[in-house]
Design a protein around this nucleic acid. Structure first.
Lengths: 97, 97
DNA sequence: GACATACTTGCACAAGTACGCAATAATCAT
DNA sequence: ATGATTATTGCGTACTTGTGCAAGTATGTC
């Protein structure tokens, strides 16, 4: 694994490694359909602007996907992609790869 | 998952989510036997004091284990424990749990 | 157009973090 | 004891980050 890939993985882990962002991820975990930011606000006790910024970080790191729909923006988890990256790291730590 | 557990997981991910710390983890991944700090210094281009602090963080989060041996301190990965936590998160994101 | 709704951005601020250097502590070798 | 080796800690610095508030943008409704 080269430096750039490692930096990317570190950035992903850092994105997940903040309480409110992780809360947003867990919230999205339990939603079948994409959720808008206002709905997601309910799971963390912070200003909506803060949620907006956290979602931006998660989107930049590929954790969530955004879709404009009218004046709303619907967010959904990139489940397979993120889970795969976490499992790959787990395998390396495990010594399974 | 309650708030405290979530915070703990976030702290673990944050510990892993820094380039040099992740490099240390990868380095330890490829070592059968516990390594001392000097050896681990080689994998990141920073002062030994910085490595020392990063190892302290990793130890606090349970990523590595430390064992004093003479004037050396041997570090090793808590492979199973960390891998399990990452897989558990992956499963939740996946929707497998 | 006027107003409401959904969300983002600019700004300021407090807190946290990564870093290098120098000093210190602890252990080993002679 | 003296000095070398291994690692940690104190300190200062530059940078990043999470946050709230206020203002701004974009879209929908009347």
């Amino acid at each position: 694994m080269d430096g750039a890939a490692r930096q990317e993985l570190a950035d992903l882990l850092k994105a997940l490694g903040e309480f409110n962002r992780l809360s947003l991820v867990y919230e999205l975990c339990q939603c079948e359909s994409p959720q808008n930011a206002t709905c997601l606000c309910d799971c963390c006790n912070v200003d909506s602007s803060v949620v907006s910024r956290h979602l931006k970080v998660l989107a930049q790191e590929g954790v969530v996907q955004m879709e404009k729909r009218g004046r709303e923006r619907k967010y959904s988890l990139n489940r397979a992609e993120i889970a795969e990256k976490l499992r790959s790291l787990a395998d390396q730590i495990d010594g399974l790869s």
